[in-house]
Computed example of a mutant assay.
Amino acid sequence: MMNHKRLLILSCSQRKSHKEGLLPAIERYDGPLFRILRRYQKTQDTRNREAEPSLSTYILSAEFGLISAEYPIPYYDCCMTRHRAQMLHPVVMDKLKNLLTGGCRFQELFICLGQAYWPALEGWEAFVRRDMAVHVAWGAIGMRQSQLYEWLYGTPPSASAPSKSGQPSLRGMAVELSPQQIFEIARQGLRGSSRMTTFCHMWYIPVDGQRVAPKWLVSRLTGLPVSTFRTDDARRLLAQLGIEVRRA
């Protein structure tokens, strides 16, 4: 029986291992998406030691372009910008074309990129076969974490999948954001005028003189539906992240 071939394209992460020398890209990058991926690969290695791997992972790197997860890279400090993404576009598209139209016929494609990376992949749809299932992650980093987890495992994150990263987390979804970044996400919700943003019963987060609902904010940070956790869970996570939650 042939393996169901899947292709994952991830953007690189600002957080990296500082180990000297060269490391495979999947080990060098250490953001929450890469931790989810590494945990998944370990489970697959344990279950299918003799089977051909069904998942191929490529990383869109601000420094190196589109590279295999096993490609050895040094530590570097380079952030993706729109200009940098546009510069990388020609070589990235050539590599992507070879991946999608070459000998390995992938049945599924999952693309999970930060906003700044998309110009490097502009026009990717032209290389996708009609019979290929395509998934594009969207939303804030927490939502993309949740979508990646579900695509890899075939099931949403649950309480039985704890984070081992040491970072504040809820149901296995680690949150690596500063209070300033979290408040900006809250402000975006307020600007969007969503009723759920300000639907506060007993607890709220003060943001620019307005009240933001803790469960709504945690849902935005983790990608988890508000129905899957309690207000106490949200308060606990926000406290770990340095966010004050007040009683209404």
Score class of each variant (00 low, 15 high):
Met2Leu: 12
Asn3Tyr: 08
Lys5His: 11
Lys5Gln: 12
Lys5Gly: 03
Arg6Pro: 04
Arg6Ile: 06
Leu8Ile: 09
Ile9Val: 15
Ser11Ala: 13
Cys12Arg: 00
Ser13Gly: 07
His18Asp: 14
Lys19Trp: 15
Glu20Gln: 15
Leu22Thr: 13
Pro24Gln: 09
Arg28His: 02
Tyr29Asn: 06
Gly31Ala: 05
Gly31Gln: 05
Leu33Cys: 07
Leu33Ser: 06
Phe34Ala: 01
Phe34Lys: 02
Arg35Phe: 03
Thr43Gly: 08
Gln44Ser: 05
Asp45Gln: 15
Glu50Leu: 13
Glu50Cys: 09
Ala51Gly: 03
Ser54Leu: 05
Gly65Val: 08
Leu66Ala: 07
Ser68Pro: 03
Glu70Ala: 15
Glu70Cys: 11
Tyr71His: 15
Ile73Met: 08
Tyr75Arg: 13
Tyr76Leu: 03
Tyr76Gln: 05
Tyr76Pro: 02
Cys78Pro: 00
Met80Glu: 01
Thr81Asn: 03
Arg82Leu: 10
Arg82Lys: 14
Arg84Thr: 01
Gln86Pro: 07
Leu88His: 05
Leu88Ile: 09
Pro90Trp: 10
Pro90Tyr: 09
Val91Met: 14
Val92Lys: 04
Lys95Met: 10
Lys95Asn: 08
Lys97Phe: 08
Lys97Ser: 11
Gly102Glu: 08
Cys104Leu: 15
Phe106Ala: 03
Ile111Gln: 06
Ile111Lys: 07
Tyr117His: 15
Tyr117Thr: 09
Ala120His: 02
Gly123Cys: 10
Phe127Glu: 06
Arg130Glu: 13
Met132Cys: 10
Val134Gly: 05
Val136Phe: 02
Val136Trp: 01
Ala137Asp: 05
Ala137Thr: 05
Trp138Lys: 14
Met143Gln: 15
Met143Phe: 11
Arg144Gly: 03
Gln147Met: 10
Glu150His: 12
Pro157Ser: 10
Pro157Asp: 04
Ala159Asp: 12
Ala159Phe: 09
Ser163Cys: 09
Ser165His: 01
Ser165Val: 02
Gln167Trp: 10
Pro168Ser: 05
Pro168Arg: 03
Pro168Glu: 03
Ser169Lys: 01
Arg171Ile: 06
Gly172Ala: 06
Ala174Glu: 02
Glu176Met: 09
Ser178Gln: 14
Gln180Cys: 13
Glu184Gly: 04
Arg187His: 03
Ser194Ile: 11
Arg195Pro: 06
Phe199Arg: 12
His201Lys: 15
His201Trp: 12
Ile205Leu: 01
Lys215Thr: 12
Leu217Val: 12
Ser219Arg: 03
Ser219Val: 06
Ser219His: 05
Leu221Glu: 01
Thr222Pro: 01
Gly223Tyr: 04
Gly223Ser: 11
Thr228Pro: 02
Thr228Val: 10
Phe229Lys: 05
Arg230Glu: 08
Arg230Gly: 03
Thr231Met: 08
Asp233Gln: 00
Ala234Ile: 00
Arg236Asn: 12
Leu238Asn: 00
Val245Thr: 09
Arg247Val: 11
Arg247Cys: 09
Arg247Thr: 12
